[in-house]
């Protein structure tokens, strides 16, 4: 098949889905160009998994159209299935089979001939660091290994679009970084990735574009940089040894201390650049105000989420919450 560059991998229009009276997806429109990483970001219960289930033909939408690689997920489900790989939140591996047998099973179901099936199995075991454990039953694998096997199983058929539903939930930091590297390698091969996550850092690290999902609606969409720009600029937080120094600094810089005032900290708006930081400290120095310590706060996705929904996300640091 020859296709024009930058064509659409996933197109979603007016998607709705409810379970009983509970509306899970409430009119979603998305557009994911081929060869990019798109991240659906949101707290638990935002509708991320339902979205992946619909896009991967597992369940049907109540309304709206979804096309994956140009094929309609309802009327042309088998073509969609042939083009995608899915890795769910819960590792869908066969515990009784070894890693190698799991991959071989997938190769057989993709109707690859014997030699090709073996070649891809060996290649994936190698790429995902599972070669040594290839002959052990999957039930004996660690969480990270299971997740890698799960992802490898989704890749046997050389999919053009890969759905990763919270691929690093429950993984330790090291396995998480391994997973991120794997995702980056996949992107290098021109695959389109649709990633759901509740980790803001993960979306920030991996995604070309991010959609924030909150209670079934996309509340913001853009590149990580665009989203960060939607938040009022960063600030420098200054800490002081006592209330007197705090009051003096507030006067010099013409910034009101935090209401309540029990913390000896002052937030000074600014981009956190070296030049403005030096100017700031110079001004305090000139007024002989002693600074105890400082932190530079650049806006992150936590701030974006808070700015857009008015609610903190799960895992938000208290510092970022009080920043608003």
């Amino acid at each position: 098949m020859t296709n024009p560059p930058n064509r659409t991998a996933i197109a979603v229009t007016g998607l709705r889905r409810s379970y009983g009276r509970q509306v899970v997806l409430d009119g979603i429109d998305l557009h994911v160009p081929e060869g990019t990483v798109f991240s659906l970001l949101g707290p638990n219960g935002a509708g991320k998994t339902t979205m992946v289930q619909i896009l991967s033909t597992l369940i049907r939408a109540d309304a709206g159209t979804v096309r994956v690689c140009g094929h309609d997920v309802v009327s042309d489900a088998d073509r969609v299935r042939a083009a995608i790989g899915v890795t769910g939140q819960f590792s869908a591996v066969d515990d009784f089979l070894t890693g190698q047998e799991n991959l071989q099973l997938m190769a057989d179901l993709h109707h690859l001939d014997r030699a090709e099936g073996r070649r891809r199995t060996a290649d994936l075991l190698d790429r995902f660091g599972l070669a040594e454990a290839a002959r052990r039953p999957a039930v004996a694998y660690s969480g990270g290994m299971r997740r890698r096997l799960d992802l490898a199983m989704g890749l046997i058929g050389d999919p053009r679009v890969i759905f990763l539903d919270e691929p690093t939930t429950g993984l330790d930091p090291r396995s998480r970084r391994d997973m991120w590297q794997i995702v980056r390698d996949l992107v290098g091969r021109g695959v389109t990735i649709f990633l759901t996550t509740q980790y803001l850092e993960e979306a920030d690290q991996l995604a070309d574009r991010i959609a924030l999902l909150d209670r079934g609606r996309v509340v913001a969409e853009g590149t990580p940089a665009e989203l960060k720009r939607r938040v009022p600029g960063g600030h420098v937080q200054l800490r002081f040894a006592d209330g007197r120094a705090l009051a003096a600094a507030a006067a010099v810089l013409d910034v009101a201390p935090d209401p309540g005032g029990e913390s000896l900290a002052l937030r000074v708006p600014g981009d956190g650049g070296v030049r403005s930081l030096r100017a700031l400290l110079d001004r305090l120095d000139a007024a002989s105000v002693e600074v105890d310590g400082l932190t530079v706060h650049t806006p992150d996705l936590d701030d974006v989420f808070f700015a857009v929904t008015g609610q903190p996300t799960p895992g938000t640091t208290p510092e970022a919450v009080t920043a608003r």
Partner: peptide
Amino acid sequence: TGGIMARFRTMAI
């Protein structure tokens, strides 16, 4: 319950 059924259902088999 293990999820492999869901995997099979997303495959062109």
